[in-house]
Amino acid sequence: MSHETINLTLKIWRQPNAEVEGRFEEYKLEGVSTHASFLEMLDILNDELIEEGKEPVAFDHDCREGICGMCGMMINGQAHGPDNETTTCQLHMRRFQHNDKITIEPWRATAFPVIKDLVVDRSAFDRIITAGGYVSVNTGNAPDANTIPIPRKDQQKAMDAASCIGCGACVAACKNASAMLFTSAKVSQLALLPHGKSERGERVLKMVAKMDEEKFGSCTNTGECEAACPAGISLDNIARMNREYLKATLCSTES
């Protein structure tokens, strides 16, 4: 058995706001229970910092159960840390050893400017969805839900894609800071479902254009995004989006 409690050295990125340069600072933390979550470990650090009259480390979080997509940081160079399909908030300290040194940084991408310490601005994702990541159906328009049967395998694939939590780890893990995995997950979900089909061409063109405009990098198929993704979003979605895009460009040049 590993220690019930462990001591850690934390090297954390501190940056007061977007205008100022940031730098690493080191902190010692003792007696952390291995049952605590990673964010609870940071809570303990922050309570100690506040008691000493120092500014606590700012980080985003809300649900703390891996679904809201609000948390996210680079832990020893890995987006969301070492565990597969695990968000930062679900990572637990039993994954670390006594006397480990842990480096913690914010997501790094031009499209995600740092707001403070580990908090970044991911509103570019909202703007990609605004560009077309929806079905144009007004409230009250819908026919009975069973009117159109949906083959179970399509529903399952759509559900797989729809599981994206919008955390941005795919961008942070990618050397080009590409948002292909995120964008393709939404494009795929809606292309797989009958209700999303009528707008599919226009949707993919607009979302991809927005993605480029927001200064996300291009995709060079390294697959780092998939490896970092806590929601198990697969690279198949990128392939599907590329096909959708190709089809849409062909159609739009034809007309």
Binding site: Y134, V137, G140, A142, L193, H195
Partner: peptide, 14 residues
């Protein structure tokens, strides 16, 4: 249920 289905909510299916 109708509205959400039309929006593309992938409810479980038989």
């Amino acid at each position: 249920i109708d509205q959400c289905t039309a929006q593309g909510v992938p409810f479980a299916r038989e």
